[in-house]
């Protein structure tokens, strides 16, 4: 979970240029993520963590802050490991 949270923050820093990115940073209000940056974020996350975010979870409004996004990604990663 911590590894994923750090990875998410690194990617967000790269995309938004906002420093620092904290776990409690709000995606829209603190980091200013827009719909195009969110697409970029999804692609980077999927490539970095070798996961796939399903279409139903591609709504930016589902994630208020960095922690909620990291929590969801950790869940996918855990399930993927379980299957493997």
């Amino acid at each position: 979970m911590e590894r994923i949270d750090q990875g998410v923050r690194d990617i967000l820093l790269k995309i938004t240029g906002v420093n620092p990115v904290e776990s409690h940073s709000l995606l829209k209000d603190d980091l200013g993520i827009d719909s195009f940056q969110f697409v970029q974020l999804v692609v980077e996350l999927e490539n970095t963590f070798k996961i796939r975010i399903d279409d139903a979870h591609l709504n930016m409004n589902r994630y208020t802050d960095v922690a909620s996004l990291s929590a969801y990604l950790s869940e996918i990663a855990k399930n993927a490991e379980g299957i493997a």
């Binding site: 719909s35 697409v39 279409d55 930016m60």
Partner: peptide, 10 residues
């Protein structure tokens, strides 16, 4: 819906 990731993905 107005263009967003879920629209692009589908």
């Amino acid at each position: 819906p107005t263009f967003q990731a879920s629209v692009a993905a589908s």
